[in-house]
Design a protein around this nucleic acid. Structure first.
Lengths: 140, 140
DNA sequence: CTTGACTTTGAAGTTGACTCCAAGGTTTAT
DNA sequence: ATAAACCTTGGAGTCAACTTCAAAGTCAAG
């Protein structure tokens, strides 16, 4: 069993964030000591990593909580998870395309601008950034 | 010249957001009418699109402002922009990898779970989400 | 057995990127 | 010439995801 500080170090996260996740219903400690210290099992480390990874992929904590809770409600059917997953997958694909377009342009520009001696007025990076086409969608 | 409402419609953004961008130094109107109405040139539409695209790629408004301001300061050298660009490009590449990993897993799971009839307890999506490996990094 | 590192709670504060509102002034269409 | 649709400012409110704080209890090392 891990105390909150150990879990925090294992997950590269703050203890406050862990307590916040608990308030938000994402990560409840397995038990508590007599004096009220939170105790987490090893699965908590995996769950923290899952939360972090899902966040990095653009899921909000509310969405992550939904997924985690769906698993616990044995009445719900896999279909619920499936449709959410498909929706998220489509959003993710759009974001990836957008980011790849930006990445390609940045690459080109880093090369174009390779000598680094041009004044900013003429910097091709900024000129080209304005030419990027994308869906204009926001991140979340 | 566009009034703020026209620009808002052209950029699929709210007038409040445009005024917010002005306060934040990202988009200043070209001029004002005698009665104080903001007037924007056509380049404002491109600038709005640039801001939106850069946001979609994970740049914060502060970073976008920096880039936009660098262009205006004729003393600064292209090198400044270049190093920022390289840094951003690396971050972007890491995010793309992370998102592609998630995307692949979601794809597999959507297929595995194709009939949608399993109860959530056995849903392979949730089981597999916990197995994902990534850098655990946050989005911004 | 004391010192220092750790933990608790609850509440308030922060940041980013807006959004909403009130109380007006301006333009445009009919 | 008047109603509808637009614009102005300043400030407050919102939301997510934390962080910081205060005041106090607990645990581990020497």
């Amino acid at each position: 069993m891990l105390t909150i500080g150990k879990l925090a170090r294992a997950g590269a996260i703050s203890t406050d964030a862990l307590r916040y996740y608990e308030r938000e219903g994402l990560l409840v400690p397995a038990s508590k000591t007599g004096s009220g210290y939170r105790l987490y099992g090893e699965d908590a480390v995996r769950r923290v990593r899952f939360i972090q990874h899902a966040q990095a992929c653009g899921f909000t904590l509310a969405e992550i909580r939904e997924l985690l809770h769906l698993r616990q409600s044995n009445s719900a059917c896999c279909n619920d998870v499936r449709s959410r997953t498909i929706e998220k997958k489509l959003q993710l694909a759009a974001k990836i395309r957008s980011m790849q377009a930006m990445s390609t342009v940045l690459d080109q520009l880093i090369n174009e601008c390779a000598d680094g001696t041009q004044p900013v007025d003429d910097c091709p990076i900024l000129a080209a950034l304005e030419r990027i086409e994308g869906d204009g969608g926001r991140m979340s």
